[in-house]
């Protein structure tokens, strides 16, 4: 870990404008020179590994009085960005009314990490690609733009089959983001120019030729909260996560599913995929294919096939196409049997 300047934010606005200024000039090779520190479960890890080398770290944990609360009303769910993963996962109203959110959090990481990590940091968690996380691998476009991608022809069992480019096939590792995406959540951001709200689906960027730019956040932008609108599908929702071991592992494939059924027929289906894509991934074509149909083996299999229609497997991750499809089918059939 390299020495850095440490300070504490006094308000989101001030923090954002301060970081926007300091981050302007020293943007070297795409590396932002300043970072926010919340739970630290990704940032400190990557700083010790020398993957991230911010010159300045602004601690925002002191803002939790303002941005650390959970509000559930009939108008929807509001989550402060500094809410801990464990607090949201265990919140009785979220468990009852937004099960997909609670499950995606409970199935992530370990109890210790969930007690530290915040929701705002969680959605920005960086990939677990080992070629990214170990600086001794010289070829990583995400860490060192233009250096190549060792994973393309390397060990890529964990890597993405959807949303990948020739520059990067690193998987987005999280779980919670898929649930937010399925529920059409929005993100509250404070930037140098003031506050704004964007769809959660507009937060992450596909790697394309610039995999080091992972989000649409500008320098200094700070996520202050997440909002989830109400809907008839939120109760009939679940998160299914498939992995090699029973706990404490990133998904090989996962599906966040929410269904609005009427008389056994789909009014709206929402499907987001994890473990298989470079970003949180909404399977909109698959959702559309289900509209107006009952959920059964045939319709679910059809939706699953559509969801993975554009997949591009590499040497070791071809199984993710079959596994991802089976995961979608299982999640849809299971969601259909949930009580209203």
């Amino acid at each position: 870990m390299r020495p850095f300047l440490y300070d504490r934010a006094t308000s989101a606005d001030l923090a954002a404008s301060a970081l926007a200024t300091s981050a302007d000039a020293p943007l070297v090779q795409g590396r932002v020179d300043a970072e926010y520190l919340a739970g630290g479960t990704t940032l400190l890890d990557l700083m010790k590994l020398d993957v991230m080398q911010p010159a300045r770290v602004t601690d925002i944990t002191v803002l939790d009085a303002r941005h650390g609360t959970i509000t559930v009303t009939d108008a929807g769910l509001k989550l402060g960005a500094l809410v801990k993963m464990s607090a949201a996962a265990d919140h009785p109203e979220i468990v009852a009314r937004y099960p997909v959110l609670a499950q995606s959090l409970t199935l992530a990481a370990s109890a210790q990490l969930r007690n530290m990590a915040t929701l705002g940091g969680n959605v920005l968690q960086r990939t677990r690609c080992n070629y990214f996380r170990d600086t001794s691998w010289s070829a990583c476009n995400k860490r060192n733009p233009g250096s190549g991608c060792a994973a393309l022809d390397g060990v890529n069992r964990q890597h993405a089959v959807l949303g990948a480019s020739e520059a990067c096939i690193a998987t987005y590792p999280g779980d919670f983001a898929q649930a937010l995406m399925a529920l059409d959540a929005t993100v509250d951001i404070v930037g140098a120019a003031g506050p704004r709200t964007i769809p959660f689906a507009a937060l992450h960027r596909l790697p394309g030729s610039t995999p080091h730019v992972e989000t649409t956040l500008a320098a200094g932008d700070l996520i202050t909260g997440l909002s989830v609108p109400p809907g008839p599908w939120t109760r009939r929702s679940l998160y299914l996560k498939i992995r090699d071991r029973q706990s404490y592992e990133f998904a090989l494939a996962s599906a966040a599913v929410a269904l609005d059924l009427q008389g056994g027929v789909v009014r709206q289906a929402r499907i987001a995929l994890g473990g298989v894509a470079t970003t949180p991934w909404r399977a909109r074509d698959a959702e559309a294919a289900l509209a107006g149909k009952p959920i059964n083996e045939a319709t679910a299999a059809d939706a699953a096939r559509i969801a993975f229609a554009g997949s591009k497997p590499r040497e070791h991750n071809a199984y993710k196409v079959a596994l991802g499809q089976r995961t979608v089918v299982r999640a849809l059939l299971q969601a259909a049997t949930l009580e209203d």
């Binding site: 060792a150 390397g154 029973q246 592992e249």
Partner: peptide, 29 residues
């Protein structure tokens, strides 16, 4: 079921050199 040190065929180096990616059973297993 879990353990495997992944070897990069081009570089002849180990890839998953950490306990998040080198899997061992957890209590739930």
């Amino acid at each position: 079921l879990h353990e495997e040190t992944e070897i990069d065929a081009n570089a002849a180096r180990y890839v998953n050199t950490n306990l998040a990616d080198y899997l061992v059973p957890v209590n739930a297993d």
